[in-house]
Computed example of a mutant assay.
Amino acid sequence: MSYFMYDVMGGTVDGPDPEAMGRVLDGLANADDEHPDVSLSHESGWCLSTFRSGLLVWENTEDGSVAPVEMREVSREETLRLFRLLAEGDIASIEALSWQR
Rank of each mutant, 00 (worst) to 15 (best):
M1A: 09
S2H: 14
S2T: 12
S2I: 09
Y3I: 04
Y3N: 06
F4C: 08
Y6S: 10
Y6Q: 10
D7R: 06
M9K: 11
M9D: 14
D14F: 13
P18T: 04
P18F: 02
A20Y: 00
M21H: 00
G22Q: 03
R23P: 00
V24P: 01
L25Q: 01
D26K: 08
D26I: 04
G27N: 02
L28P: 00
N30S: 13
D32L: 06
D33A: 13
E34R: 07
E34Y: 10
E34F: 08
H35M: 05
H35Q: 03
D37F: 12
D37P: 00
V38G: 04
S39Q: 09
S41L: 13
E43A: 14
E43F: 06
G45Y: 02
G45E: 02
C47E: 15
S49M: 06
T50L: 00
T50R: 02
T50W: 01
S53V: 02
S53K: 10
G54L: 08
L55N: 12
L56Q: 10
V57P: 04
W58Y: 14
W58V: 05
T61S: 12
T61G: 01
T61A: 12
D63C: 08
S65N: 11
V66M: 13
V66L: 14
A67P: 11
P68D: 11
V69M: 15
E70H: 14
M71Q: 15
E73Y: 05
R76K: 12
R76D: 15
E77F: 01
E78Y: 01
T79V: 07
L80N: 02
L80D: 04
L80W: 07
R81Y: 03
R81D: 12
R81K: 07
L82Q: 07
F83K: 00
R84M: 15
L85S: 07
L86G: 00
A87F: 02
A87S: 14
E88N: 11
G89W: 03
D90V: 06
I94D: 06
I94M: 07
E95W: 05
E95C: 06
L97A: 08
S98Q: 14
S98G: 10
W99Q: 09
W99E: 10
R101Y: 06
R101S: 11
